[in-house]
């Protein structure tokens, strides 16, 4: 039995190597993120709603929609030449495959997020220098939440008809707690409030991460069986 995390890192590294070579999903997600950020800036009445007021919501809508592009692709890659069968036939555990896919997707989404974050600051004319540690914390917590559930659901929908339609339908309800929490924390941070004001939300995010990452690892095998 090959070491669980060793195998997971191999799988994640493989996904990253493929993405670096093709860059199609990354470029689509990034351009998509920039477009959504720009469109949401105009989707308000400038005389009554300031850009800063909608900024946290805009940021998280952008992040989740862009992440969805990566998640949709995650298992398409394995399905293309039935590579997932090749993975299953090796000695690695199903958990290692799942953790590897989650790590690969996390890397993808984090890069999209940290490339679009400066653009967000620029577009919405914000000053976030003092808030960077807090922002990184909330971005990590919320991204782990939706990438873990999203990877699990992606493994299922890729085997159904209309996979691209099914993923948002099934995933969005699970995004309610992490996205609402992330928006709340982000808006407090952007208003210059300390993190101690949002411990309730951070606890909720942390609890969601622990609960859903654990459950997703346990349930992953059921998405592969046939």
């Amino acid at each position: 039995m090959y070491n669980l995390f060793g195998a997971a890192f191999r799988i994640a590294a493989k996904d990253i190597a493929i993405e670096l070579r093709t860059r199609t999903a990354f470029m689509s997600a990034l351009v998509f993120a920039i477009l959504v950020l720009a469109i949401l800036y105009f989707a308000r009445d400038p005389t009554s709603v300031g850009a800063a007021d909608i900024a946290p919501g805009a940021l998280w809508v952008t992040f989740t929609f862009a992440a969805m592009i990566g998640l949709n692709r995650a298992f398409l890659l394995e399905k293309e030449n039935a590579a997932i069968d090749g993975l299953i036939l090796t000695d690695v555990s199903k958990s290692a495959i799942f953790i590897g896919k989650v790590l690969g997707n996390l890397a993808f989404v984090f890069v999209v997020e940290f490339v679009s974050l400066p653009l967000f600051v620029l577009f919405y004319n914000l000053d976030i220098t003092a808030q960077i540690p807090g922002l990184i914390l909330v971005i990590v917590l919320a991204t782990v939440a939706f990438v873990s559930v999203g990877t699990l659901l992606s493994s299922m929908v890729v085997r159904t008809r209309f996979a691209e339609l099914m993923l948002p339908l099934l995933l969005l309800p699970f995004l309610v707690p992490p996205i609402v929490s992330a928006v709340q924390v982000t808006s407090r941070l952007l208003a210059g409030r300390p993190l101690s004001e949002v411990t309730g939300w951070l606890n909720l995010l942390g609890g969601f991460d622990v609960a859903f990452v654990t459950l997703s690892i346990l349930l992953f095998e059921a998405t592969l069986a046939e």
């Binding site: 493989k14 190597a17 493929i18 070579r21 030449n81 039935a82 590579a83 090749g86 036939l89 000695d91």
Partner: peptide, 23 residues
Amino acid sequence: HSSMLYDALSAEENLKFFSHLHG
């Protein structure tokens, strides 16, 4: 019926990847 390989990787990269997973 399908190759179970990744098109974007080279022959050697594919085999190295799977050799690691096979231990």
